[in-house]
């Protein structure tokens, strides 16, 4: 079973972004970048499926400019067998990312595609579901457990009320939630080995798709800042403030 894992290069989750002074976007100059945490979990899940004998080959793919090769190398160090970069300097809508991935799915015919549930930059939470729709495949989003069962996969999903398990015919699309697994660290020998694993580069323009933007980012502003309030010394004081000053309790 072949597994395709789309990964995105994003700002490191520990970094608090700043908005550019001209409000055109956030400022990513000299900011630490990393694999989107949900994509890291996707890679780990694929590696575990391979270790368990369920998967035979793992292909990591990223759509972006040359710098995303760094994250592809990380995925290779974590256990992916080969990588594909689809080169573009444009900031694509999730719809276009999904369309490019659809082409790769048609070419590679994976049995399983594991994506992150959400990019921590755009917070879109769209690409996996869109890819599933475009390929006509079933989806198990927000997965906290993935179990291959013959020609089906059982996916346990994190939903508002608790957990829901669905059975999907393979091939299928899965998107990861945080509790699916805890990603490993790449070992030094594996980082060295990853340098020699194949990484193919394709141009986004070669796929014959219309990638004209469907949205325009008009402006980006900082959120309303909350003012730090006061520190109270006693529980009595807290209760008094909540009753008489904030008036949020009776």
């Amino acid at each position: 079973m072949k597994v395709l894992v789309p990964i995105k290069r994003v700002i490191d989750y520990n970094v608090k972004v700043r908005v550019k002074a001209d409000n055109s976007d956030v400022d990513l100059a000299n900011v630490k970048m990393a694999i989107n945490p949900f994509c890291e979990i996707a890679v780990e899940e694929a590696v575990r499926l391979k270790e368990a004998g369920a998967a035979t080959e793992i292909i990591a793919i990223s759509i972006g400019d040359k710098s995303c090769q760094e994250q592809l190398r990380t995925a290779l160090a974590l256990g992916a067998d080969r990588a594909i970069q689809i080169n573009t300097d444009e900031k694509l809508d999730s719809l276009h990312v999904a369309k490019l991935l659809q082409k790769v799915v048609e070419e590679e015919q994976p049995q399983l595609v594991i994506l992150g549930k959400q990019s921590i930059d755009s917070d879109n939470n769209q690409t996996g579901q869109m890819l599933a729709a475009l390929t006509g495949l079933p989806q198990g989003t927000f997965a906290s457990e993935v179990k291959i069962d013959g020609d089906k996969v059982n996916v346990t999903r994190e939903v508002d009320g608790g957990l829901q398990t669905v059975a999907l015919n393979l091939p299928a699309i899965v998107t990861t939630d945080l509790r699916l697994n805890e990603p490993r660290y790449a070992s030094l020998p594996n980082i060295m080995k990853a340098k020699r694993k194949p990484l193919d580069v394709k141009e986004a323009s070669e796929f014959g798709l219309d990638l004209t933007p469907r949205t325009t980012l008009l402006k980006v502003t900082p959120p309303a800042e909350r003012q730090a309030g006061i520190v109270v010394e006693t529980v009595d004081e807290l209760v008094e403030k909540l009753k008489n000053e904030a008036k949020v309790i009776a």
Binding site: P213, R214, T215, L217, T221, P223
Partner: peptide, 13 residues
Amino acid sequence: IYAGNAIATVQSL
């Protein structure tokens, strides 16, 4: 966007 650390105004075409 960015976990609420920035607020985007987006036009849909």
